[in-house]
Simulated assay, not measured.
Amino acid sequence: MAKILIAFASMSGNTEDIAELIKTTIESPSHEIEMKEIENISSQKLLDYDGIILGAYTWGDGELPYEVEDFYDDIEGLDLAGKKVAVFGSGDHAYPKFCAAVDILEERLIACGANLVEEGLKVELAPETEEDIERCVTFAFNFSNKLEETL
């Protein structure tokens, strides 16, 4: 059984909506899924999971939200070798750096030795259009399939 963490930060509910869609898509008897807010999880707990999916909205001009900053700092130097990871986020094209939090988190996870198995998912605000929902579902399925290939 694969143990999967979906950890996210959401202010307006958009990123949480994406997290819920991902969770619903990959729920199966072969997955034990925990969904938590990033600010409520210790970086050391990441070591307990086979698969890690992180989500965050982008704040201001392309920064991590404040509730993700401590977690981001804490995972620096953590040995995540062998962990399958993916990152998603919500953003707004009105700002100069669309969904930059996704890129920032991906870079940190890769620097920690994690195996990024799916390209970051970036969604404009909430996943409301058929296209956005399909992209979220595809992201989740691809992550799940790549995780199961190694178990």
Rank of each mutant, 00 (worst) to 15 (best):
A2Q: 11
A2G: 13
I4V: 12
L5E: 03
I6K: 01
F8E: 02
A9P: 11
A9F: 15
G13L: 14
N14W: 07
T15S: 08
E16G: 00
E16P: 00
D17C: 02
E20R: 02
L21F: 10
T24E: 15
T24N: 15
T25E: 10
T25A: 12
T25I: 05
E27C: 06
S28F: 00
S28L: 03
P29C: 02
S30G: 10
E34C: 06
E34T: 03
M35F: 05
E39R: 00
I41C: 11
S42I: 02
S42T: 12
Q44D: 11
K45I: 00
L46G: 07
D48V: 00
D48G: 02
D48E: 11
Y49I: 06
G51M: 04
G51F: 10
I52L: 14
L54I: 07
L54F: 09
T58I: 13
W59K: 02
G60Q: 06
G62K: 12
G62V: 13
G62Q: 09
E63W: 08
P65E: 08
Y66S: 14
E67L: 10
V68K: 09
E69Y: 10
D74A: 12
I75L: 15
E76P: 00
G77R: 03
L80C: 10
G82T: 13
G82W: 13
K84T: 08
A86V: 12
A86M: 10
V87H: 05
V87L: 08
F88K: 00
F88A: 05
S90T: 15
S90R: 05
D92F: 13
D92M: 05
H93W: 14
Y95C: 03
Y95K: 02
P96L: 11
K97V: 06
A100G: 01
V102D: 01
I104W: 02
E107H: 04
R108M: 09
I110N: 12
A111Y: 06
C112F: 00
G113S: 01
G113R: 00
L116V: 09
K122P: 13
A126D: 15
P127F: 02
T129C: 13
E130D: 11
D132R: 05
D132N: 10
D132P: 01
I133D: 14
I133A: 09
C136N: 00
V137Q: 08
F139D: 03
F141Q: 13
N142F: 07
S144E: 09
E148V: 09
E148R: 14
T150I: 07
